[in-house]
């Protein structure tokens, strides 16, 4: 915690080792040469929209593909459960005794989500499935524009705030014996609004996104969302992630600028890396924006262990 790092960093790169100087061209030309396409963003948005559309179409045309909503669903008959929602429910029902009645389907759904995101990197859910993430990405663009025009100032908080909220919402749920968080959860609200029709509750989403645009960038995803925090814990030891190769890096920090969780990319700064290769931590949403942004292809998707064999 608190960004503590006990390893000593490697000495800064020599000038002749920096990629564009090695190739004998200017930084600008090097950047233009390698160009940054939106490859992963396009794929990711397609998956995100596709999955949410599948929910909507399954209800609209009564198909047994992906029924339910993001709070709990059924994929070809196999149940899937939202982990934070289930966790709140489990804590209350363990106390009241309702836990004895829970169905096998619930256990299967909870376990499936747990195993899947343990393998795929917990917060992969955030950027590849969560509909609020999609909205917030557009909010972020607007926010960045306003900051650039000097209309507003940037406000940042500590990234570990999420865990305070995580514990807080669990305690609140236990004390009130209600799923308090689900009433303000933008994931569930947006998912249900899309599938079962919109309601007044969307005003809350509007308030949230407005706050993110005019005050603090990606406030909900970065500092509050306990669902993201849960996934972050689930994917702590996940093999799937993004790797960093120091040799290809020119320390331009383009990746940090586009990243939702720039603290996970601490090693790209000059003189910070402690080894030739680094893997991002569990706060990373595996969104791939940094991979698209990197002019030197120093960042790429990886499966830990597997890439050494291949």
């Amino acid at each position: 915690m608190f960004g503590k790092n006990n390893k000593t960093p490697l000495p800064p790169k020599k000038k002749e080792d920096i990629p564009y100087i090695k190739e004998g061209i200017k930084f600008k030309d090097w950047k233009a040469k390698n160009g940054s396409a939106h490859k992963w963003r396009t794929i990711r948005w397609s998956v995100l929209i596709g999955i949410n559309l599948l929910f909507v179409l399954s209800f609209m045309f009564d198909l047994s593909l992906l029924e339910g909503s993001l709070s709990g669903s059924r994929l070809f008959g196999f149940y899937l459960m939202d982990p934070f929602n289930s966790l709140q429910m489990l804590i209350i029902s363990a106390y009241t005794g309702h836990i004895k009645l829970l169905t096998m389907n619930f256990i299967i759904g909870f376990a499936t989500i747990f195993i899947f995101y343990f393998l795929m990197g917990g917060r992969t859910f955030c950027s590849w499935i969560c509909p609020y993430h999609f909205l917030a990405e557009w909010g972020e663009k607007l926010h960045n524009y306003l900051v650039k025009k000097k209309k507003i100032k940037e406000h940042t908080y500590n990234i570990y705030l999420r865990y305070v909220f995580w514990a807080g919402f669990l305690i609140l749920a236990f004390v009130t014996q209600q799923l308090v968080f689900e009433n303000i959860n933008p994931i569930g609200i947006l998912s249900r609004s899309m599938i079962y029709g919109p309601g007044l509750v969307l005003l809350w989403i509007l308030a949230l996104i407005t706050f993110e645009i005019v005050y603090s960038k990606r406030f909900w995803c970065r500092y509050v969302c306990p669902v993201g925090a849960t996934y972050s814990m689930v994917g702590k030891l996940s093999p799937f992630g993004v790797k960093f190769e120091l040799d290809k890096c020119a320390h331009c920090l383009d990746c940090q600028k586009v990243c939702l969780v720039p603290h996970e990319l601490w090693f790209v700064e000059k003189g910070k890396a402690t080894s030739k290769r680094h893997d991002v931590g569990s706060d990373c949403t595996r969104c791939g924006l940094c991979i698209d942004a990197c002019p030197g292809n120093a960042l790429s998707y990886t499966v830990k262990g597997l890439d050494k064999i291949l």
């Binding site: 939202d82 799923l179 689900e182 079962y196």
Partner: peptide
């Protein structure tokens, strides 16, 4: 019911 229902809409 109020806490057991996770509001999935199945």
């Amino acid at each position: 019911f109020i806490y057991g229902c996770i509001k999935c809409g199945l």
